[in-house]
Structure formats: C-alpha cells, structure tokens
C-alpha cells in the first residue's frame, strides 16, 4: 500500500518532489495569507468586548496550532525514518524543526502582545503560554542536539529519538501545566478559552490557518532541498544539476 512512497527515500527523487511542490505551496500560502489577513484585519467585525485588539488571533491562533502540529509532523517523520531507515525522512524532520520553533516563537510573542491590553502586563503564567514556552524548549533541544553531531546522519537519528520523547511528553506537559495553572491561579479566567466565535470572524481565521500551514510546507520543502544539496554535494546528480544551473 505504501510502495508508491518508497522511491522518495532516494534523495534525488525527494529533491525533485520538493522542487515540484515548492511553487504550489508558495502561491497557495501567499494567496491564503493575503486574503485571510486582509479580511481578518480590515473587514471582520470588531469583538464586542476586546475591540480591535482581538484581531491578533488571526496570527496567534494559527501559529499556536501549527507549532504543535509541526512538532507532531516531526515525530511522524522520525518514525518513518526509524522504521524504514530513510535518510530523507530525517532530512524532512530537521527541515521542519526551525520553522516550528519560529512558529512557537510567533505564538508566544503575539500571546504576550495580546496579554498587554488584556492583563496589563506582557507576561502572565497562563497555561497555554507556558506550554508554548516549554514546546519552544523542546524544539530548541532537538535543534541543539542535531547541531552537536558532526555526522549528520547520526545527528538525524539522535534528533529523531529526542523528537519522539518530546512528542510523548507534549500532552503530559500540556495537561500538567493546565492543572498546575488552575491550582495556582484559580481566579484568572483564561482569555484563550474557546470563545464562541461568529462565522464572519471564523472564516478569515480558517483561511489564515491554511495559509500558515502552506507557508510552513513551502519553507520546509525549500529547506529540505537545501539540506539534500548540502549533504549530497559529492554525488554525480548534484554535480550535473550544478552544471546545468551554471549553463
């Protein structure tokens, strides 16, 4: 059933696939982000409580959701690498890591910026912000571990194990932090609790979510192409590619 995927274990095929996908991801991402952002920022109705400041959800929510999903995607890539011994799977995983870390950072930054008008301070130990912060630490750990090895193949395997340890921990961390939060700050109401959102507010959010996802995919395939070229610089097919590019 998965046989059709196996050719992509070869770096050259994976490179070609990335090259084909890249323009589609980029155009989709730009389109969705333009539509979603303009709609969300300019045309969606104001929130009756928070006024215009709620509009930061069009950045905050997609980046927060995708920071988690990117980590899960990394873990899936790590499992694929572990089970089938694909070098390209580890390359994909490590291509995603910094992108996910940046998403986590954006979620944290926008969360803090949102916190300023809401709580009157930049940082509150809110459950979700705290889990995002720990998620950022997990990302940084994987990236640091990958960087510490000179042999990048070994590095990929090691980082993969760590990503898997992390992904088992993410839900545990999430619930423990939530529980810790209610224990210590029972009085504060989380501003991020599921708001019943109006449809005209929801649509631009969903479009932006798709836009962010496509953006992550686009950057990932770009980084993966780079990674493949860098690692396979000695191979004939890369040399042929370079010669073609130089004319």
């Amino acid at each position: 059933m998965w046989k059709w995927l196996h050719p992509y274990a070869k770096t050259e095929r994976a490179y070609q696939l990335c090259k084909t996908l890249q323009p589609w991801f980029w155009s989709g991402a730009l389109l969705c982000l333009a539509v979603g952002t303009v709609w969300g920022l300019a045309f969606a109705p104001q929130d009756y409580q928070q006024g215009d400041s709620f509009r930061i959800i069009y950045i905050h929510v997609p980046s927060a959701i995708l920071s988690m999903s990117t980590y899960v995607a990394m873990a899936v890539a790590a499992i694929v690498g572990l089970v089938w011994q694909w070098r390209t799977a580890y390359m994909a995983m490590i291509a995603m890591a910094p992108v996910g870390a940046v998403m986590t950072f954006i979620a944290l930054f926008t969360g803090a910026a949102w916190g300023k008008p809401m709580w009157g301070t930049w940082w509150v130990w809110d459950a979700r912000l705290t889990s995002e912060l720990i998620l950022l630490f997990l990302y940084l750990g994987v990236i640091a571990l990958y960087g510490a090895f000179e042999d990048k193949q070994q590095a990929g395997k090691a980082a993969g194990v760590m990503a898997l340890v992390g992904v088992v921990n993410v839900p545990i961390i999430h619930y423990s932090v939530e529980w810790w939060n209610t224990l210590h700050q029972g009085a504060t109401i989380s501003k991020f609790d599921k708001p019943s959102i109006a449809a005209e507010m929801l649509w631009p959010l969903l479009i932006n979510l798709l836009g962010f996802a496509l953006f992550i995919a686009a950057v990932t395939v770009m980084r993966m192409r780079n990674e493949i070229i860098r690692r396979e610089i000695q191979r004939p097919w890369v040399k042929a590619l370079a010669q073609k590019a130089l004319g």
Binding site: E150, D151, K152, Q153, R231, E232, I233, Q234
Partner: peptide
Amino acid sequence: NALTCIKRDRI
C-alpha cells in the same frame, strides 16, 4: 552482501 557505508556524507 552489497554493503554500502556512508560516513559524514562521504561514501
């Protein structure tokens, strides 16, 4: 049998 070894991206 048909062993290939790659170390530090060198065959």
